[in-house]
């Protein structure tokens, strides 16, 4: 059986057969996913930046350093298994989130509390 001859000497050296059999990857052969949180400098927040596939947390951390710490400054990285994160199901709970910043809850906003008019009126009445 003949082998691939390449312009890339590394490929020629690898003696790769020209026609090949391939065993497809099975269901979870590329492991679970871990979500990655990254802090770019001390004092900053850890921000979710993406995920990696890994067989355990230690390797997830290793891949996360390579993938998300390679090109920017990094002070800290966290990894957490995707299945351990409990999340919102957006479709089920739209109202809760829709009403939070709305007008009928304006008593929670700093700018809903106005005093200047009252103070001015008071001063005028007192003639100060």
């Amino acid at each position: 059986m003949s082998e691939i001859t390449s312009l890339d000497p590394r490929i020629t050296r690898a003696m790769i057969p020209e026609s090949h059999d391939s065993t497809p990857l099975s269901g979870n052969e590329l492991f679970e996913t871990y979500e990655v949180l990254h802090q770019a400098k001390t004092g900053g927040r850890h921000t979710h930046v993406g995920s990696v596939h890994a067989p355990n947390a230690e390797m997830a951390y290793l891949f996360a350093k390579e993938q998300y710490g390679r090109r920017m400054t990094t002070t800290s990285i966290w990894v957490v298994r995707t299945t351990d994160i409990f999340t919102t199901d957006g479709a089920d709970e739209p109202e809760l989130y829709a009403t939070a910043p709305s007008a009928d809850k304006d008593y929670r906003n700093a700018n809903a509390w106005k005093v200047r008019d009252k103070i001015d009126r008071y001063k005028k009445e007192q003639n100060v």
Binding site: N28, E29, E32, T33, H48, P55, M59, I85
Partner: peptide, 18 residues
Amino acid sequence: AWVRRALMKPSAKVVAPL
């Protein structure tokens, strides 16, 4: 393949990333 198989956990549950 042998590296993947050595590390594989048959119990791992695969879900889509977040």
